[in-house]
Design a protein around this nucleic acid. Structure first.
Lengths: 155, 155
DNA sequence: CTCAGTTACTATGTATGCTAATTATTAGTA
DNA sequence: TACTAATAATTAGCATACATAGTAACTGAG
């Protein structure tokens, strides 16, 4: 039989699908047009101004190619500035523009609402336990990912 | 400030990323070349032979366009037969070929290993609780998804 | 029977998410 | 210094994953 509905892989995929849909609905309802990855990149750049694309990719656990495209779109929309670094002309230094900073602030309520809606099927205790288990799994599984999280030792 | 590492959406995305990577590694190591969606489609067709693409999309919670492409690739590789239905010439009836049936059987150990590896950071009790919480969340959140699960009342 | 509405699928376009290969640049070594 | 290895981006290609729009075919009300 192998009902796929009980497989962790299937449930995780469904959960991600729902999570992305909720994010899209909430941000659109709030008047924004941003994807989860784009938000993650902007938030990470706010906390780590001046990093290059490879470092950014490591911070949000993505491969370089995807991040290259994401940054390119964020740049063309005026949220991010990309500059060739003086001390290493291969690398591009990334910083938020004022427009990017402003977006991050005004979009905050929609992000909060999104995270709440994703887990609003659980009570407080379940929600905390669920997050704890996810953190445990992502910590254990990070090594399996082809784009592992690389915070340089932090977080 | 707003560490994305604590957001459910981020953790879910990471988990899915790891899940997909583990699936790819396990199936490749076993000598197969199949994506999680392709496996889901094949498994669903085995349990529901003769259904059309829209029904299949509902069963595995995907949109029609994605499934159209997935089925097209499965057909060109000889795993699925696609036939215009006599009683409704808009629809295409899908069935597994012998090659498709055979693949599903021989790939089974790799699928089992995948599901185990995904959750091998948890002990038995945690694993059961995690799956329970995911089922609860996907049940609650199904309505939010743009491609909701539609089993016609079952599962 | 006619036609308006619905439905199944396909076509087009955008954005992830990844692999493999290429280019430009830097770092290290003989 | 010349050469090799490593690294940051980019390019090309494949497969989801979705929105939107179009085509062909079916359904039901009148």
């Amino acid at each position: 039989m192998t009902q796929i509905y009980d497989l962790p892989g299937h449930l995780i995929r469904r959960l991600n699908q729902i999570s992305v849909a909720v994010f899209a609905a909430q941000t659109k309802a709030a008047g924004f047009d941003l994807t989860p990855v784009q938000y993650g990149a902007l938030a990470s750049l706010r906390d780590h101004p001046g990093i290059d694309q490879t470092t950014l990719a490591g911070l949000i656990a993505h491969d370089q190619v995807t991040i290259g495209g994401v940054v390119s779109r964020l740049e063309s929309r005026g949220y991010v500035q990309r500059r060739v670094r003086d001390d290493d002309r291969r690398a591009r230094s990334l910083t938020l523009t004022e427009r990017g900073e402003s977006l991050l602030q005004t979009i905050q309520p929609a992000i909060r609402a999104t995270q709440e809606q994703i887990t609003n099927g659980l009570d407080e205790a379940e929600r905390a336990e669920f997050i704890r288990l996810m953190r445990k799994l992502t910590d254990t599984g990070n090594q399996y990912s082809r784009a592992p999280l690389d915070t340089g030792g932090d977080a």
